[in-house]
């Protein structure tokens, strides 16, 4: 039995403790905003926060997340009010296909918590997500816009 707190809500389900957190979130909890892209911590599509830190959930077992605060893309808006990162993403029309963007937004949200006014170099170091559509130019613009908001 695993006990997880996701987006402030408690969940309890029966799962092998070695199951990657990604698949527990997607399949046991049913939140599918967190994506599978590679399964080996390369692409960042599965990024969520554990206690405010961005992690690649495909490579973290459920057991390592028990008792901690997990936040997914579904948990960063306040009801209908988008987070400032989401709002910047909307204003700058960042997504193309959008598949990588949950992970991108979660990685950026964590970056801004740590460094509210990141430089381009900070962005280059912290944001290593893959986007096959190639939205990086808009991602960078939107990060700076969110930092100013």
């Amino acid at each position: 039995m695993a006990r997880l707190t996701i987006n402030g809500k408690p969940y309890e389900f029966d799962v092998d403790p070695t199951t990657p957190l990604l698949w527990a979130i997607r399949e046991q909890v049913g939140l599918t905003g967190t994506k599978y892209g590679c399964g080996i911590a390369q692409c960042g599509a599965c990024t969520v926060h554990i206690d405010g830190t961005a992690v690649r959930s495909c490579s973290v077992p459920v057991s390592a997340a028990e008792g901690k605060k997990i936040t997914t893309i579904e948990g960063i808006a306040a009801g209908d009010v988008l987070s400032k990162v989401q709002q910047a993403w909307l204003d700058h029309e960042v997504p193309q296909c959008g598949y990588c963007q949950s992970g991108m937004i979660m990685a950026v949200t964590a970056l801004l918590q740590e460094k509210p006014k990141p430089t381009d170099a900070d962005i280059d170091d912290a944001i290593t997500n893959i986007c096959r559509c190639g939205t990086f130019q808009q991602v960078r613009e939107a990060i700076h816009a969110a930092a100013k908001a």
């Binding site: 939140l31 599918t32 905003g33 967190t34 997914t72 893309i73 579904e74 808006a77 988008l82 989401q86 993403w89 909307l90 029309e93 960042v94 997504p95 959008g98 963007q101 949950s102 937004i105």
Partner: peptide
């Protein structure tokens, strides 16, 4: 765009 930002 919007549903691509919220996981929906």
């Amino acid at each position: 765009t919007l549903p691509k930002l919220t996981g929906k």
